[in-house]
């Protein structure tokens, strides 16, 4: 069972990575406009540098 000493921190680390990713999306205001994001995917204008 000594493998747990490695596995638990690894699984926690992966989870923390996900959490950090989520917090980043939050900070980048990706949840501010769910309706707009749903519509933007339907825009048909070509854009080389899409707005973040």
């Amino acid at each position: 069972m000594n493998v747990l000493i490695v596995l638990i921190p690894v699984s926690l680390g992966l989870g923390l990575l996900g959490l950090a990713g989520f917090l980043w999306t939050l900070k980048a205001r990706q949840f501010d406009d769910p309706e707009g994001d749903a519509s933007r995917i339907l825009q048909d204008d070509w854009d080389d540098r899409p707005a973040p």
């Binding site: 699984s11 989870g15 923390l16 996900g18 959490l19 989520f22 917090l23 939050l26 949840f31 501010d32």
Partner: peptide, 17 residues
């Protein structure tokens, strides 16, 4: 709203682990 969402994310992470 962002504050609630952040707490929600933290709680989700903790819940899964």
């Amino acid at each position: 709203s962002r504050d609630l969402l952040m707490r929600l994310g933290v709680a989700f992470f903790a819940m899964m682990n």
